[in-house]
C-alpha cells in the first residue's frame, strides 16, 4: 500500500518541485533583465531616428511647437535649428513570419525620405531578410501614400516580406497624414 502511494506521489512531487524552481528562475531572470530589455528597445529606436535625420533633435509635439501629440506615441517631429524638417513614424505590418517593424522618415511635404527596418527577425534569413538592405529600401525615397504595390521592385521569392515593408511604409504615411490633417497643419 505505502509502496503504491510512493510510486504515485513521488513523480508528482518531483515534477511539481521542478516546475516551481523553473518558474522561480524565470521570474527572477525576467525581473533582472526587463529594464535592460526596455532600454535596448528605446536605444534602437533613438538610433534609428538619428539615422533618419542626422544631427536633428526630436519633439513629440506635432506639428512642432503646437503641443499636439500622437496619441499612439509613434510619431516624432524632427527639428533642426528650431525649424521642423520632417517626421519619424514607427509602423508595423505583417511579413512572412510575423510583424515587420519599420521607422519611416518623412519630409514636411509628407514624402518618404528614408526607411529603416527596426525588426525583421521573423523573416527568412538570406531571403526575406534581404528587405532590410539599405539599397533595396532606397526605392521608397521620394514616394508618398499614392505609391502602388506594383511600383515596388520586390525581392525575388520574398513577396510577403517585400509587401510587409510596403504596407508598413504606407501605413506610416497614412498615420502621419491623419495626424497632421487633424491638427490642421497641412504642409
Amino acid at each position: 500500500m505505502s509502496k503504491n502511494v510512493k510510486a504515485i506521489l513521488l513523480p508528482a512531487v518531483v515534477l511539481t518541485a521542478i516546475c516551481i524552481v523553473c518558474a522561480a528562475a524565470l521570474g527572477g531572470v525576467k525581473l533582472l533583465t526587463q529594464d535592460k530589455i526596455a532600454e535596448q528597445a528605446a536605444a534602437a529606436s533613438n538610433e534609428a531616428m538619428a539615422a533618419l535625420f542626422p544631427g536633428a533633435s526630436f519633439s513629440d509635439s506635432l506639428p512642432p511647437g503646437t503641443g499636439t501629440k500622437d496619441p499612439d506615441g509613434l510619431t516624432f517631429a524632427a527639428l533642426q535649428d528650431g525649424a521642423g524638417i520632417g517626421y519619424a513614424v514607427t509602423s508595423a505590418a505583417k511579413g512572412y513570419g510575423g510583424d515587420i517593424q519599420v521607422m519611416v522618415g518623412f519630409d514636411t511635404a509628407l514624402r518618404v525620405t528614408k526607411v529603416i527596418v527596426l525588426d525583421a527577425s521573423n523573416e527568412t534569413p538570406g531571403l526575406g531578410q534581404n528587405v532590410v538592405k539599405a539599397e533595396w529600401l532606397s526605392q521608397f525615397a521620394g514616394t508618398d501614400t499614392s505609391m502602388a504595390y506594383d511600383e515596388v521592385d520586390a525581392v525575388a521569392s520574398a513577396t510577403y516580406s517585400s509587401k510587409g515593408i510596403y504596407n508598413a511604409v504606407i501605413a506610416a504615411g497614412e498615420h502621419l497624414a491623419a495626424l497632421i490633417g487633424e491638427n490642421g497643419g497641412g504642409n
Partner: peptide
C-alpha cells in the same frame, strides 16, 4: 523550456 527562455532574456538584454 525554462533554460531556453532564460538564455533568450539574457541575449535580448545584453
Amino acid at each position: 523550456a525554462s533554460m531556453v527562455t532564460v538564455v533568450q532574456y539574457l541575449v535580448k538584454a545584453y
